[in-house]
Design a binder for these strands. Structure first.
Length: 395
DNA sequence: ATGTTC
């Protein structure tokens, strides 16, 4: 970068964007993720990049960052516009993980307005379905998405927890999902024409973006309602629902969040892993953190590494039954390894970093009981498959 | 992350 613009040349660039990463030295942040922060900071119009303690490398843009600029860049939000985490109280008489795990519905199967017209989960839809988008409605998706039945563990702030209607021992559904194909379609429509460039028609992008954000939130409610009904409980309103992939207009700037939750006076569920607690926090992040907090534990390993190392380290059985005694419903073997707790950083360290930087106050933990990822093959199909393997071995 | 992708 030239420091001396010639008089006849273009205007000198504005001051370079600042980058602040809110992680202590004990928190391992990959150099690739820091490099991505610097690359984002060098974009035209960029003002400030705030890296959260769960920062890790993404594709071109880091995950776990809040990035403010005078220019709107759709790729900084990514394809899963509207992805977020919601918490729904649920009341059950007994919560035996092994039993309840078998009662989760197939959340790969979309809710169809005609075929599933009598599904009680529809009751959560008030008014129009955003963008009229029915594809994938009521499905959880893949990757790090899940629906989890959890129990409130340690309560650090009883008054705050009580205001949310939560106390130790209470059951909740934690839903992490996004806008499925809708957000992907919106980003693709942009990148096909403009690549990683800024939004040419900001108003049009924001209109679609806002629909995806509403769709994601509605989908989390539908997922919780489907599971609540299947477990024999009544659906409830979320006590927490924050989106961590979105852009917000703030102080006349575009504040992009990618794997970073709004932290300005909001309550946020910061996801641990399926085998560790999650933390419900009261967030109070200021401008230095771009008004944002972490969204999860953050990956420690790439999916490829987690698969390779996990196969050497873990059996399928130990991944399906976690150290906290919870059960993982995941018919996809590869996903079981990719999402193993050992593939993530320690959530306690992430939360400690937020506390030390005065970005958030822990309110309570939630401890997993059943984490649903993808449907298990039905028992008949499974025994058929086993018989098939034996047959081949003998032959 | 994603009815994608060689």
């Amino acid at each position: 970068m030239s420091l001396h613009a010639s008089p006849s040349g273009p205007l000198p660039p504005s001051a370079p964007a600042t980058v602040t990463v809110f992680a202590s030295p004990e928190s391992w942040i990959e150099s690739d993720a820091l490099r991505e922060c610097q690359q984002v900071a060098a974009l035209d119009g960029m003002i400030h990049v705030a890296g959260m303690p769960d920062l890790h490398p993404g594709k071109g843009a880091p995950i776990g960052a809040a990035m403010s600029s005078t220019v709107l860049y759709p790729f900084l939000v990514g394809s899963d516009i509207g992805c977020g985490i919601a918490v729904f109280p649920i009341k059950l008489k007994r919560a035996v993980p092994e039993k309840l795990a078998t009662r989760f519905p197939d959340l790969d199967q979309p809710l169809d307005p005609e075929r599933d017209a009598d599904d009680p989960a529809w009751a959560v839809v008030a008014g129009e379905i955003p963008a009229g988008h029915l594809d994938g409605l009521g499905t959880v998706g893949r990757g790090n998405h899940f629906v989890e039945l959890a129990r409130v563990g340690t309560v650090f702030e009883p008054d705050h927890a009580a205001r949310l209607g939560l106390a130790t021992g209470d059951l909740v559904l934690v839903v992490h999902s996004g806008s499925r194909g809708l957000g992907e379609r919106i980003l693709r429509a942009h990148t096909e024409v403009h690549g990683a460039g800024p939004a040419a028609d900001v108003a049009a992008y924001l209109t679609s973006h806002d629909e995806a954000v509403r769709w994601g939130s509605l989908n989390r409610r539908l997922l919780a309602a489907r599971v609540a009904h299947a477990l024999g409980a009544e659906p409830t309103e979320p006590v927490v629902d924050e989106c961590h992939n979105l852009v917000e207009i703030r102080d006349g700037r575009y504040l992009h969040r990618k794997g970073a939750a709004p932290g300005d006076g909001r309550d946020v569920l910061i996801a641990g892993t399926r085998g560790t607690p999650s933390y419900l926090v009261a967030a109070h992040a200021g401008p230095e953190a771009n008004h944002s907090v972490a969204h999860g534990a953050g990956r420690k390993m790439s999916r490829a590494d987690a698969l390779r190392r996990g196969r050497a380290k873990h059996t399928v059985e130990e991944l399906r039954r976690t150290p906290v005694g919870s059960v993982v419903v995941c018919g996809e073997r590869q996903l079981l390894f990719e999402e193993a707790p050992s593939a993530y950083k320690r959530i306690e360290r992430v939360v400690a970093d937020l506390v030390e930087h005065d970005l958030a106050t822990p309110v309570a933990t939630t401890i997993p009981l059943v984490t649903y990822k993808t449907p298990e093959p039905d028992p008949a199909a499974r025994s058929d498959r086993r018989a098939g393997h034996r047959g081949r071995r003998r032959g």
